[in-house]
Simulated scan of single mutants.
Amino acid sequence: MEIKHIVLRHMKMQLLSPFTTSLGTEYDKDFVLVEIRSKDGISGWAESVAAIDPYYKEETVKSNWSIMNDFLIPLLLERPVEHPDEVSERFAHIRGNFMAKSALEGAIWDIYAKQKGIPLSEALGGEKKQIDVGISIGIQNTIPELLDLVAGYVKEGYKRIKVKIQPGWDVEPLSAIREQFPDIPLMADANTAYTLADIDHLKQLDAFNLTMIEQPLEHDDIVDHATLQRRLQTPICLDESIHSVEDARKAFQLGSCKIINIKIGRVGGLTEAKKIHDFCKANDIPVWCGGMLESGIGRAHNVAITTLSNFIMPGDTAASSRYWEHDIIAPAVTVENGLITVPDETGIGYEPDLERIQEYTLYSKTFTSSNT
């Protein structure tokens, strides 16, 4: 495909309610929306999941904008792209900056699927027509508030409940949930809030029959997680520590985890996400798709990747209405009885709402190919 234009938009959307984790509280979502227009008039869409602050990972909205502007977009505009897999190869000598790379690569994948006349899920090799989804619940002010939220999401049919935890908000809330809901699939997400000094404390979580505990230790660690996994019955899931299939291989060899969360932005794009999926499938490691408070554009990419066969655990891709009063796609992503029906339209399968996109755009920049 020959690229005609690339448009970056700095977007700001207000969350319906604050979302609190051990890393802090988010009230709004700033992100970079990418639109790539091919010479044959097709637009591909994706978004960067980098936040305004470098708390989850080191990337931010501003750093993503800068690295795309100065390095990645010039590389992408050098010559036509025959297949989306080439994008990660073209960017390989640029260290890190996975979320920026993923956003540009994702838009190329959308164009590729549209040019082929197939859904993005099919272009990726996906098989499912529906995907199971769970819900992620931030840290609440009180346990009764938490239990009310859990009860509501269980009633709505979500297939798994994920609860954010941190020291001082872990054993008691999980115990209360288990007492009221003894059979629901339940997991805890620590977002790096603990150390090996907390082993005896974390062992208390084994009593709650959790599906997993996600990323309890440092964001870049796979060694100490192996020590912790040997002491816990609860499976450890790695999130922040996994950026590539090589990271997944090393974690598997060390015994650092039993489950891996694949976030498209964190691993640098759909191509690397597929590689991690394939490695994990070959080694009987279940995977699932994590969420980053995406708008409908990013949510559509998550739906597509989750159709691959080894995504056997419900992911975080909840309905648009969980986070936004008005999403930037039409129709919005909806969930019925814990299931999302995979769209069969070409590309990401949802139509960008240009009016809403314009409303939420703080500023934009257009890059034009010199070959146009």
Rank of each mutant, 00 (worst) to 15 (best):
D110W: 07
E127L: 14
G96S: 08
Q130W: 04
G117I: 11
P119F: 06
Q130G: 03
I118Q: 09
L120S: 05
G96T: 07
K114F: 05
I118S: 10
I94Q: 06
H93R: 10
V133C: 09
N97G: 03
I135F: 08
Q130C: 05
Y112C: 04
H93P: 00
E105Q: 04
I131D: 05
Q130M: 11
E89K: 13
K101E: 01
K114R: 15
I94L: 14
G125E: 11
F98C: 07
L104V: 01
D110E: 08
L120Y: 06
I131R: 06
M99F: 08
S102H: 05
A107N: 01
S136C: 15
G125L: 10
A113V: 01
G138A: 11
L120V: 09
I137P: 02
I135L: 11
S121H: 14
V133S: 06
I111G: 01
I137M: 07
M99K: 13
P119I: 07
R95S: 14
S136K: 06
Y112I: 03
R90I: 15
I118N: 09
A103F: 03
A103Q: 02
F91I: 07
F91M: 05
K129Q: 12
G134Y: 10
G117W: 12
L124H: 06
Q130E: 15
A113G: 05
Q115W: 07
